[in-house]
Every structure is written in C-alpha cells, then in structure tokens.
C-alpha cells in the first residue's frame, strides 16, 4: 500500500484508484455525520404539525437517508461497497435554528470506514426535506454537513469536537455524546432536554450564544427560557428540575462558558 501519499485514493502516478483494503483488519466501525436545514419558522411548523401537502416530511426523509446510505458506492466513485449492519437517521426539529437537525449513524464490521455512508445518508435526508418543502419555502439552506464521530479501524476513534485539542481521557469521555452536535460558533453553547421535558417542549436541543445572556448563570438562562412562552414557562417551572453542565450535575449559580453542554431534565427514574 502506498502510505507516502496522504491522498490514499491516488496511486503513485497521481491517478484515481480504489484503495486495496484486503490486508486491513475487520473491525467494528461506526460513523456519525450531521447536517441541518434552515427554513422559515412557518415551514418548520408545517412539518411539526404534519400538515404538509406532501405528507410526513421527517418519516420520508428518514427512509430516504437510510436508502441513500446503501447506495453510497454507486454515487462516490472510489468508495467500497459495504455490508452495512446498521443505519440510523434521526431528524429533529430545532426551533432555534429554525429548521431540522439530521444525524446519521452507520455501522458495520468490515475493513473500511463508514463515514461516507453516514455523510450520504445525512445529505440525502436533507435533500429530501428540501424536496418535500420547496413548494412552500424555496429559501431553505442545507448546511453544516460533516462527520461528527468515527469509531474503530486503524486510525482509531475520532471526534469532531476533539480534533484540535490534545484530548485527555477525561475530555474525551465528556465528548462521548455521539448524537450531539458540538457547538461551532464562538460564544455558542448547547442546551439539551431529556425525557418528559423534551416531549413537553417539543425540542431536544437548542444552540444559544452567550451574547444573548446578560448574566450567564444557569438560573438566568432558565428565566430566559421560561420567558419564551407560557408552555416553556409552565414546563420549566418544576422546582425539581435537574441541571447538568458538561455532563456533571451543577447548581443554578453555575456560570455558563462558551462550548458548554447544558442539560435540563426531570428527576431520574432508572434502576
């Protein structure tokens, strides 16, 4: 194998080739990619309420993403055909975008990675959302298509949010949330909701920036979220609400920093 060339899809003469992977070990591999599609709030509402003229947009886009993952080698010239063992496409409405967040995870036991399949699934799911909604909104923007996480194989585990830092074990653990998009914009932080609260608010994640918060304490964030409307106020009023930052329980006095992963959730009921 030509290891000297950093572009493994080129041979020594610089011509395109399919890489010979027959000597590579069979390992369990997973890749997660994401995409988002920004739209008018009214378009998003149509999707959420299911009143769309073309039918259930999210369910259709999910199937489109899964089917697309299986077609990847037919679309990308030098990509190996793979026996995918799992394809999962999640579409969630994000009112803060406003739009749809797409996460695609592909898995297999094989000799080559599955990030192309995950990227294809996320892209085609986004295209399908566009196709189904273009009659009501032509200005939708498909954005942020990227690989979030890759596991298994020679190059080992890789995580979008860990790429630049020399990650220690602890920071790696803190970023193991496969399905969660790392904040990319400066001053941004994410807010996650779980279980009943997620269902009540109809949203699992918000991306906010510190600039929107005069005082960046958790308590103030909560007040601001409650001011959104009566529903938010009602559901976040529960005094038993638990809060975590970067996956550790914290007190409301915590001062939010850029890049933080904030989470609100009801009292836990495991075991």
């Amino acid at each position: 194998m030509n290891t000297a060339n950093p572009l493994s899809h080129l041979n020594t003469r610089g011509e395109a080739r399919m890489v010979d992977v027959s000597e590579k070990q069979i390992t369990s591999r997973t890749a997660t990619a994401c995409a988002s599609i920004k739209m008018q709030p009214t378009t998003l509402n149509l999707i959420i309420e299911g009143g769309h003229p073309k039918g259930d947009v999210l369910a259709t886009a999910r199937i489109a993403g899964i089917m697309a993952a299986k077609k990847t080698p037919e679309l990308i010239p030098l990509c190996h055909p793979l026996m995918l063992s799992k394809v999962e496409v999640d579409l969630t409405a994000d009112e803060s975008l406003p739009g749809i967040l797409i996460h695609a995870t592909c898995k297999l036991a094989g000799q080559t990675g599955v990030e192309m399949e995950a990227l294809t699934a996320a892209s085609v799911a986004a295209l399908t959302v566009y196709d189904m909604c273009k009659a009501v909104d032509k200005r939708m923007i498909i954005q942020g298509i990227r690989v979030l996480e890759k596991k298994g194989g020679k190059s080992g585990d890789w995580d979008f949010s860990n790429e630049e830092e020399n990650s220690t074990t602890t920071s790696k653990q803190a970023n193991q949330t496969a399905a969660m998009t790392p904040p990319t914009v400066e001053n941004q932080f994410s807010v996650h909701f779980f279980a009943e609260l997620r269902e009540q608010l109809g949203v699992d994640k918000l991306l906010l920036t510190l600039d929107d918060l005069p005082n960046p304490s958790l308590a103030d964030l909560l007040t601001q979220l409650r001011n959104r409307d009566t529903q938010w106020d009602k559901h976040l009023a529960n005094h038993n609400l638990l809060m975590a930052v970067n996956q550790q329980m914290v007190k409301p006095s915590y001062q939010i920093k850029a890049g933080d992963e904030v989470a609100f959730f009801p009292p836990v009921t495991g075991g």
Binding site: F194, E196, E199, F265, P266, V268, T269, G270, G271
Partner: peptide, 19 residues
C-alpha cells in the same frame, strides 16, 4: 443509581403511555 444516574422510564399501558 436510582437518584443520580440520568435514566428515565416511560411506561406503556393499555390506557396510554406516561413518564
């Protein structure tokens, strides 16, 4: 574990689902 680990149960019954 019952009071600190972030797990949540949703039960499905003949009369509906609830957390």
């Amino acid at each position: 574990l019952k009071t600190r680990a972030p797990f949540w149960k949703k039960e499905h019954t003949l009369t509906g689902d609830y957390w």
